[in-house]
Amino acid sequence: MGTEFVQFSLTPILIGIFSAIACALPGNFLILRRQAMISDAISHVVLPGIVVAFLLTGVIATIPMLLGAAGAAVVAVILIEAIKRLGNIEPGAAMGVVFTSMFAAGVLVLEQTDTSNVHIDVQHALMGNLESLIWFRAEGWQSLLDPAKLASLPDELARMAIVCAMIFAAMLVFWRWLKIATFDEGFAQALGIPASAIGFGLVIAAAIAAVAAFDAVGSIVVIAMFICPPAAARLMTNRLEHQVIWSIIFATASAIFGYVFAGYGPMWFSARNAVSAAGMMATVSGVFLVLTCLFGPHRSRVGMKAQDDAV
């Protein structure tokens, strides 16, 4: 198992874990701020942004893709405002229409352009290419100590590890501000804490996670990991600190079990072909959420009752 595992499974699993955690961390705060929709928006809107950035620069690199995604986000905001005002349509519907239309437009552009010399196509946009991010030159666990072999690790691994570490570090540094601006924005502003900037920074962090993870794991996993691990984690605890730890656990478990089930699961049912690792990761995260909904220790919200009593 050793050599083959290190060659074919270790790097995709690690990339999956880092991608899942990078998305789940900002997801915790987005959900508590009732902005889960924003994560959905980001994951949809990045596609046309990335495609256009790719068409303009001809390379797949993080910075141009991030700029493209940011540009697409600006276009999305303008379109949403325009639809809201000109059409007098309620904001949720306006958002839903804009995100999906932009995503669809991204798919169309992607289909029409010649991207034969690079790895970017519609399937890739949805499901990433986790299975191909293998460490071909590895010869077993001892390769982890061999600098020459380490140099041939897929680039995505280092990129996702760095993005994940940066988001984690930013979360730790700004922890108190994030917590107070999420719980009680008015009080945070009265204290002189830049609550709006914190909210904006959170969306930027989510966008960076989405763009970085997009290319490796695809938009399905990005959408799922923003929401499922934090939502499941919320049902496990009543402390924000513990919720974040649980969300990391669920994200990691979704990546590992998702990859393993995708690769080996079909064989257990005597099917021959492996299924999409990204699809399976997202599915597993959804299963965790269902399980916590059914059995999580804090699934009944005493708080809601207290609110009703007060009113």
Partner: peptide, 30 residues
């Protein structure tokens, strides 16, 4: 400052002590 009680989500995952400590955030910094 004491905002209106209804202005926050009381289902937020935190304890009474945590909320009171938020009053000290200016003093302790980040």
């Amino acid at each position: 400052y004491v905002p209106q009680r209804a202005s926050v989500d009381w289902d937020f995952p935190t304890t009474v002590m945590d909320v009171v400590q938020m009053g000290l955030y200016r003093k302790v910094g980040l």
